[in-house]
Simulated assay, not measured.
Amino acid sequence: MEWRDQGIVLGTRKHGETSVVLEVMTETHGRHMGLVRGGRSKRMQPALQAGNLLELTWWARLDEHLGTFQVEPLQLNAARLLDSATAIYGIQTLAAHLRLLPERDPHPGLFKALGFISEHLADATLCGILLARFELAVLEELGFGLDLAQCALTGARANLAYVSPKTGRAVTREAGAPWAEKLLPLPVVLTEPDQADCDALAVRQALGLTGHFLSRHVYEPRGLSVPEARGGFITAVLKQLEAA
């Protein structure tokens, strides 16, 4: 069995004296692992850092085997990411969310989103909302997508301001007013794709919303804790936005 694909590095773990098991998110083969012989060498280590884009060749005798990767670097993003706290925590959070998906299950949309977000993880005005949108996409891929297109009570598509914490459906400001204290705020940056830059309040609301449903539908039912890196990411983003 053999295939070629592009992949973004999510992480590695040591294997033997000189090799590593490489974990990548690929465009057409999903989240995939493989052995990189000599991956702990000084020559190979810079290419195998989280966030880097690689050209991959995977080979195994049988499809169910771990297999072996041959890698060629295409974009070495890791050095840039290491200069920013939001980027360091961000790439760790993205990797943790992708590990919720079945291994080798293709998700080309998430691969493209991962690549785009990786380029903006050091920009506090963008990366907070981009992560929230990525988390919405992960929820959708796992079968827990939110309905943020129209009001659950009136069918209206304008002035959406809240989300039910139970159903994940949006509600307009007027319709939700009597229950506002029990509803989750819905920042406009999650309903209008053209809006990307956001302030600290929008980041708190957006990531509070996605965090609620990730915990409720995914992490808690699996007996997992929300990644610590996510909290570090939020703290780092808010610190930068509030200082601006």
Rank of each mutant, 00 (worst) to 15 (best):
A85R: 07
L53A: 12
V237A: 05
G208F: 04
G7L: 09
S19Q: 07
A161F: 03
D123Q: 13
H97R: 13
P178H: 10
E220V: 13
A124M: 01
E23F: 13
A243S: 14
P102M: 02
T167V: 05
G109H: 07
P108S: 03
F233N: 01
L56A: 06
T235D: 15
A175D: 08
D105T: 05
R4Y: 12
T86Y: 01
G51R: 01
A50C: 12
A95Q: 05
G208W: 05
H217F: 13
H32F: 08
R230L: 03
C151F: 03
T191I: 13
K112S: 12
A206M: 00
L136Q: 05
Q205P: 00
V20L: 13
L136I: 10
M1F: 15
H29L: 03
A95W: 03
A244I: 10
D194M: 12
H107N: 10
A122D: 15
D147V: 11
R222Y: 02
L184F: 02
T26E: 04
D199Y: 09
D5G: 12
R40W: 11
L201M: 13
N52D: 10
G211W: 00
H212V: 04
W179Y: 13
L142D: 00
R31D: 04
C198L: 09
P178G: 09
D105Q: 14
V163I: 09
H97T: 00
R133M: 04
L131R: 07
P73Y: 05
A200H: 04
P187F: 09
M33R: 15
A96L: 06
A78G: 04
W58L: 15
S225C: 14
W3R: 02
N77W: 04
D123Y: 06
L209M: 01
K182R: 15
L238R: 02
A158Q: 12
P185H: 12
S84R: 07
R173D: 13
A161D: 01
H107A: 12
V138L: 03
C198K: 00
S84K: 08
D105K: 08
E17C: 08
M33D: 12
G30N: 11
Q45R: 15
M33G: 15
L98S: 04
I129H: 02
W3E: 04
A87T: 01
A96V: 09
A229Q: 10
L53K: 05
L94F: 07
W59H: 15
T167W: 10
G11W: 04
T68I: 14
L207P: 02
D83I: 00
T18W: 08
R40S: 11
G168I: 08
V24P: 05
A243N: 14
G232M: 09
I129K: 03
A47S: 15
P165M: 08
T68M: 14
L82A: 15
I129Y: 03
L201S: 11
R104N: 04
